[in-house]
Design a protein around this nucleic acid. Sequence first.
DNA 1: CTGAAAGCGCTTACAG
DNA 2: CTGAAAGCGCTTACAG
Lengths: 329, 329
Amino acid sequence: MKDVAARAGVGLKTVSRVVNEEPGVTPDTVARVQSAIDALGFRRNDSARLLRTRRTASVGLVLEDLADPFYGSLSRAVEDVARAHGALLFTGSSTENPRREQELVLAFCARRVDGLVVVPASDDHRYLIPEIEAGVATVFVDRPAGRIDADVVLTDNAGGTRTGVAHLIAHGHRRIGFIGDQPGIHTAGERLRGYREAMADAGLPVRPDWYAMGPTTPERVRAALATMLTGPEPVTALFAGNNRVTVTAVRVLSGRPQPVALVGFDDFELADLLDPPVTVVAQDPAGLGRNAAQLLFRRLDGATSEEPSRVELPARLIARGSGEIPPAY
Amino acid sequence: MKDVAARAGVGLKTVSRVVNEEPGVTPDTVARVQSAIDALGFRRNDSARLLRTRRTASVGLVLEDLADPFYGSLSRAVEDVARAHGALLFTGSSTENPRREQELVLAFCARRVDGLVVVPASDDHRYLIPEIEAGVATVFVDRPAGRIDADVVLTDNAGGTRTGVAHLIAHGHRRIGFIGDQPGIHTAGERLRGYREAMADAGLPVRPDWYAMGPTTPERVRAALATMLTGPEPVTALFAGNNRVTVTAVRVLSGRPQPVALVGFDDFELADLLDPPVTVVAQDPAGLGRNAAQLLFRRLDGATSEEPSRVELPARLIARGSGEIPPAY
DNA sequence: CTGAAAGCGCTTACAG
DNA sequence: CTGAAAGCGCTTACAG
């Protein structure tokens, strides 16, 4: 910029004015500066600019895994809102590792992002207190923050599961199994709660061998399902606590002579092409991302004094066939 | 930092040394500075630091759509390599819009990213010449750059398609259809070429109504497929030029009494659970991302004088059933 | 309409 | 082992 000023024979501030299209510069001067810019191939350094203006026009997004389609949709929605506000997006995958989440979050803060959208991997976010006090707007999404009070956008996990399990009950099932993710994960716990509530609402008992929480590896899911299907009181229907559980359940159940009803939490591509088509309780990943980002920019635009808000998005039952199979007894 | 220096009663440079864990500071001084840092809640501003060091330790990734699982895997691979090199990742979706691609790329350059990984949406990248000359390392991935000579990492689209079509021929098919994406897209053209070559290699003719290029909307694919299946010489097998085409083809073909063989370009989740399981020519999106990022950091680590390199990754045939259906005549 | 000075928060290159 | 000065590339707050 100094070189441009020298070549055009003007002051630094005038170059700055031209570059930023500020008013109050003679057309003549503008032309001279512009030609110096072109001749020198000048390109403004936004990092330097932002150092001075104290806004980096960037947002950091920390999620579990960028390669997971659920988070892909969520990211894209955050990106769209950020773009509408003129901000660029940093992304990082925590891989469900609390330390990595913290590293990423703090790295983004060190770059002085204006705001942060975080899918928590950790259950203790007190490390963020200094950053939030320093003015970094922060919104949690998909799962609430741990040990701090902050904005959060969630799916109604318990309610969605209640709806799904009630759907199975409405189709005549009394013995219904539930296979969920690790109990430490907030969404997993909420869904288990929804299952219990739906069963209780219908006056149905829940036997200990009817539900299983743990890693969503195919082996674990297969084992859990085998137990439920061969015990003294075998289940006639299964509620799968997430995507990966559903997929493994489809594989296992398709190999059995006795049909077992299935409702899964989370929609997935081609669910309607499977045999039978899979009934699901669908989340809205793009809606989660959009709401989180909108909340973030609302904060950034001044709503700093407000109380932390909590947005809960509904989950929607999509009946396709597998959840409408009657009990086989 | 100034405040920390004042409180600890040392010079700025000493604070800098402590923050960066540089050697040559008495343990005593370190302790004094450290306690001032803690008391003041000092957090280094990496943006300012990077302004001085002239490396931003960040990489920009421009792709078509973050919500597309193919690009999700690619992104994650780029992220992993970037992290291994201590760099953060900016991401942006061009949505197949050349102007948006350029906006994103230039916005990243204005932030002075060290390097760029770009899935081209445009066919003219001369706008990047000043940036590349200014030292921004750039690697194109999935599709080559337009009108400039630059590093690129591609899938062997023509070869993969040849393999897939040859597979159908080996299973007895003589009349094989091809439905591809818009002809302007490089990968679409390459795949069409592979189809033609495989047919020619087997001495088979290609009738004009056996192939169709255009948008991958369900309506267009349905119409194209209908034409191929009802013409004077109906096809007995179809090669689907990408994911979205494959999925629509599965829907259409599953409703027909006469079985039609199908091989699709691109693998997708649950392909093995469909009926029949879908045979595909699989790309390696993570491999594309990984190779592109590795090439990028190799450039960043000094290999500036080398010629642009071109890496081509193989596509792999995965036989699952739909591609092994014999001709129905 | 224009520009010189100071400063954003750090590091570099030196000197002691 | 330690620090004062200059500078990275911009903008802010002023003055003319």
